[in-house]
Amino acid sequence: MQFKLIINGKTLKGEITIEAVDAAEAEKFFKQYANDNGIDGEWTYDDATKTFTVTE
């Protein structure tokens, strides 16, 4: 399945899409990606669109 991350950071904005087995695997990848890029904010997930959003 495809999952999307929308980044609304103070210094980094954009979107990335990955293939993952389930939402838990996608969330783990996205949170590591955000951590690696210094993004720390509020997370939301929309199951209907398979979209995670992080907002700083």
Score class of each variant (00 low, 15 high):
residue 55 T to K: 15
residue 30 F to A: 13
residue 13 K to N: 15
residue 5 L to V: 04
residue 39 I to W: 09
residue 2 Q to C: 02
residue 38 G to R: 14
residue 44 T to P: 00
residue 36 D to S: 13
residue 17 T to W: 07
residue 36 D to I: 11
residue 22 D to W: 05
residue 35 N to I: 09
residue 42 E to Q: 07
residue 22 D to H: 04
residue 51 T to N: 11
residue 40 D to H: 15
residue 19 E to D: 15
residue 56 E to P: 12
residue 47 D to T: 13
residue 10 K to R: 08
residue 6 I to V: 13
residue 33 Y to K: 05
residue 32 Q to H: 15
residue 21 V to R: 06
residue 47 D to N: 15
residue 50 K to R: 08
residue 35 N to T: 07
residue 6 I to C: 05
residue 46 D to M: 08
residue 32 Q to W: 14
residue 24 A to P: 04
residue 50 K to P: 01
residue 41 G to C: 01
residue 37 N to C: 02
residue 49 T to Y: 15
residue 8 N to R: 13
residue 46 D to C: 03
residue 10 K to V: 07
residue 13 K to R: 08
residue 2 Q to V: 14
residue 13 K to F: 07
residue 29 F to I: 09
residue 28 K to E: 11
residue 32 Q to C: 02
residue 27 E to R: 10
residue 39 I to C: 02
residue 9 G to Y: 05
residue 6 I to Y: 14
residue 13 K to S: 11
residue 23 A to W: 14
residue 14 G to W: 10
residue 16 I to K: 14
residue 41 G to K: 01
residue 8 N to F: 11
residue 29 F to E: 09
residue 28 K to L: 06
residue 29 F to R: 10
residue 35 N to Y: 11
residue 43 W to L: 08
residue 48 A to W: 13
residue 45 Y to G: 00
residue 49 T to A: 12
residue 46 D to N: 07
residue 47 D to L: 06
residue 44 T to L: 12
residue 6 I to K: 06
residue 37 N to E: 07
residue 47 D to R: 04
residue 55 T to I: 04
residue 38 G to Q: 08
residue 25 E to P: 03
residue 20 A to I: 12
residue 33 Y to N: 03
residue 24 A to K: 11
residue 11 T to E: 06
residue 9 G to N: 10
residue 5 L to A: 03
residue 21 V to A: 05
residue 38 G to F: 15
residue 4 K to I: 11
residue 15 E to A: 10
residue 16 I to F: 05
residue 27 E to N: 08
residue 2 Q to E: 14
residue 37 N to R: 11
residue 20 A to L: 10
residue 29 F to A: 07
residue 50 K to C: 03
residue 2 Q to T: 15
residue 43 W to N: 00
residue 6 I to L: 14
residue 41 G to M: 02
residue 6 I to E: 10
residue 29 F to M: 05
residue 38 G to T: 14
residue 44 T to R: 13
residue 31 K to P: 00
residue 27 E to Q: 14
residue 56 E to D: 04
residue 52 F to K: 00
residue 50 K to F: 08
residue 45 Y to I: 03
residue 49 T to F: 07
residue 1 M to Y: 07
residue 35 N to W: 10
residue 32 Q to T: 07
residue 28 K to R: 11
residue 25 E to K: 05
residue 50 K to V: 08
residue 30 F to S: 04
residue 43 W to D: 00
residue 7 I to C: 02
residue 5 L to S: 01
residue 32 Q to M: 15
residue 33 Y to G: 01
residue 49 T to W: 07
residue 9 G to Q: 09
residue 14 G to C: 02
residue 41 G to N: 01
residue 41 G to V: 01
residue 48 A to L: 13
residue 47 D to F: 05
residue 46 D to S: 15
residue 13 K to T: 09
residue 23 A to G: 15
residue 40 D to N: 12
residue 6 I to D: 03
residue 1 M to D: 12
residue 21 V to C: 04
residue 55 T to Q: 10
residue 34 A to F: 03
residue 47 D to Q: 13
residue 31 K to G: 03
residue 54 V to R: 00
residue 26 A to W: 00
residue 22 D to V: 04
residue 47 D to Y: 08
residue 47 D to S: 09
residue 40 D to C: 11
residue 34 A to D: 00
residue 50 K to I: 08
residue 29 F to G: 06
residue 46 D to L: 13
residue 15 E to R: 06
residue 49 T to C: 03
residue 1 M to N: 09
residue 31 K to Y: 11
residue 34 A to W: 06
residue 8 N to M: 04
residue 22 D to M: 06
residue 4 K to A: 08
residue 31 K to W: 06
residue 37 N to V: 05
residue 3 F to R: 00
residue 30 F to R: 00
residue 49 T to P: 02
residue 50 K to M: 02
residue 15 E to S: 12
residue 11 T to A: 07
residue 34 A to Q: 05
residue 21 V to G: 09
residue 5 L to P: 00
residue 28 K to W: 06
residue 17 T to A: 11
residue 20 A to P: 02
residue 44 T to I: 13
residue 19 E to Q: 03
residue 8 N to A: 09
residue 23 A to N: 15
residue 14 G to T: 08
residue 38 G to L: 14
residue 24 A to Y: 13
residue 47 D to E: 13
residue 12 L to D: 09
residue 6 I to Q: 10
residue 5 L to F: 15
residue 16 I to C: 02
residue 40 D to R: 07
residue 35 N to L: 14
residue 36 D to E: 10
residue 6 I to M: 14
residue 19 E to W: 03
residue 25 E to A: 10
residue 33 Y to C: 02
residue 41 G to I: 01
residue 10 K to S: 12
residue 38 G to V: 12
residue 55 T to P: 01
residue 16 I to E: 03
residue 13 K to E: 05
residue 45 Y to M: 04
residue 45 Y to K: 02
residue 1 M to F: 06
residue 16 I to G: 02
residue 40 D to L: 15
residue 47 D to I: 12
residue 50 K to Y: 10
residue 50 K to E: 05
residue 5 L to I: 07
residue 3 F to P: 00
residue 43 W to A: 01
residue 22 D to P: 02
residue 5 L to W: 03
residue 25 E to I: 10
residue 23 A to T: 13
residue 36 D to H: 14
residue 49 T to M: 12
residue 32 Q to E: 05
residue 18 I to G: 03
residue 39 I to N: 02
residue 18 I to E: 03
